Amino acid sequence: NQASVVANQLIPINTALTLVAMRSEVVTPVGIPAEDIPRLVSMQVNRAVPLGTTLMPDMVKGYA
Protein backbone atom coordinates (compact mmCIF):
# COMPACT_ATOMS: atom_id res chain seq x y z
CA ASN A 1 0.00 0.00 0.00
CA GLN A 2 1.26 3.40 -0.96
CA ALA A 3 1.33 6.25 1.54
CA SER A 4 -0.44 9.47 0.58
CA VAL A 5 -0.05 13.05 1.75
CA VAL A 6 -2.53 13.98 4.50
CA ALA A 7 -3.11 17.39 6.10
CA ASN A 8 -1.52 17.47 9.55
CA GLN A 9 -3.47 20.64 10.44
CA LEU A 10 -6.13 22.88 8.92
CA ILE A 11 -4.58 24.43 5.81
CA PRO A 12 -6.46 27.62 4.84
CA ILE A 13 -7.16 28.41 1.18
CA ASN A 14 -4.17 29.93 -0.70
CA THR A 15 -1.76 28.84 2.06
CA ALA A 16 1.70 27.64 1.03
CA LEU A 17 2.33 24.06 2.15
CA THR A 18 5.06 23.39 4.72
CA LEU A 19 6.57 20.16 6.03
CA VAL A 20 4.74 20.73 9.33
CA ALA A 21 1.37 20.90 7.55
CA MET A 22 1.71 17.46 5.92
CA ARG A 23 2.17 13.86 6.98
CA SER A 24 2.18 10.55 5.15
CA GLU A 25 -0.45 7.94 5.79
CA VAL A 26 -1.87 4.91 3.97
CA VAL A 27 -5.41 5.98 3.12
CA THR A 28 -8.23 5.20 0.71
CA PRO A 29 -8.70 6.69 -1.78
CA VAL A 30 -5.03 7.24 -2.59
CA GLY A 31 -4.04 10.89 -2.96
CA ILE A 32 -0.76 12.61 -3.80
CA PRO A 33 2.07 10.11 -3.14
CA ALA A 34 4.04 10.74 0.07
CA GLU A 35 7.32 10.83 -1.88
CA ASP A 36 6.11 14.09 -3.46
CA ILE A 37 6.11 15.92 -0.08
CA PRO A 38 9.44 17.71 -0.83
CA ARG A 39 8.00 18.93 -4.15
CA LEU A 40 4.82 20.20 -2.46
CA VAL A 41 6.63 22.51 -0.02
CA SER A 42 5.79 26.15 -0.88
CA MET A 43 3.01 25.17 -3.32
CA GLN A 44 -0.38 26.67 -2.44
CA VAL A 45 -3.68 24.91 -1.84
CA ASN A 46 -6.67 26.20 -3.83
CA ARG A 47 -9.23 25.36 -1.11
CA ALA A 48 -9.31 24.99 2.66
CA VAL A 49 -8.00 21.53 3.61
CA PRO A 50 -9.28 20.25 6.99
CA LEU A 51 -7.08 18.28 9.37
CA GLY A 52 -6.84 14.64 8.30
CA THR A 53 -7.88 15.29 4.70
CA THR A 54 -5.99 13.46 1.96
CA LEU A 55 -4.40 15.92 -0.48
CA MET A 56 -5.54 15.26 -4.04
CA PRO A 57 -3.69 16.60 -7.11
CA ASP A 58 -6.49 19.08 -7.91
CA MET A 59 -6.17 20.71 -4.46
CA VAL A 60 -2.62 22.00 -5.02
CA LYS A 61 -1.93 24.83 -7.47
CA GLY A 62 0.63 23.81 -10.08
CA TYR A 63 0.85 20.18 -8.98
CA ALA A 64 -1.24 18.33 -11.58
Rank of each mutant, 00 (worst) to 15 (best):
N1Q: 14
N1T: 15
N1W: 14
N1L: 15
A3I: 06
A3F: 13
S4E: 01
V5Y: 03
V5L: 02
V5D: 00
V5P: 00
V6D: 03
V6S: 00
V6Q: 03
V6H: 00
V6E: 01
A7L: 05
A7H: 01
N8F: 05
N8V: 07
N8S: 12
L10A: 14
I11R: 01
P12N: 08
P12T: 08
I13E: 15
N14R: 07
N14K: 05
T15K: 08
T15L: 05
T15M: 10
T15Q: 10
A16F: 15
L17Q: 00
T18N: 06
T18L: 06
T18K: 09
L19R: 10
M22I: 08
M22K: 00
M22Q: 01
S24N: 05
E25P: 00
V26W: 13
V26N: 09
V27S: 04
T28G: 05
P29R: 04
V30L: 15
V30R: 09
G31M: 02
G31A: 04
G31Y: 05
G31I: 02
I32C: 05
P33N: 07
P33A: 07
P33H: 10
P33K: 07
E35C: 09
E35T: 14
E35I: 12
E35N: 10
D36M: 11
D36S: 09
D36P: 00
D36R: 09
D36H: 14
D36T: 07
I37R: 06
I37E: 02
I37S: 01
P38R: 09
P38H: 11
P38K: 11
L40E: 00
L40K: 00
L40F: 01
L40A: 01
V41S: 03
V41K: 03
V41P: 00
S42E: 08
S42V: 04
S42K: 13
M43W: 06
M43D: 02
M43A: 06
Q44C: 11
Q44S: 14
V45I: 05
V45H: 02
V45R: 00
N46L: 15
R47P: 03
R47T: 10
R47A: 08
A48W: 12
A48V: 14
A48L: 15
V49Q: 02
V49P: 05
V49G: 03
V49H: 03
V49T: 03
P50G: 09
P50L: 10
L51T: 15
G52M: 04
G52E: 04
T53Y: 14
T53D: 09
T54N: 01
T54D: 02
L55M: 07
M56A: 05
M56T: 11
P57I: 05
P57Y: 10
D58L: 08
D58T: 11
D58K: 07
M59C: 05
V60A: 01
V60N: 02
V60G: 01
K61N: 10
K61C: 15
G62D: 10
G62H: 08
G62M: 08
Y63S: 05
Y63T: 00
Y63E: 02
A64R: 13
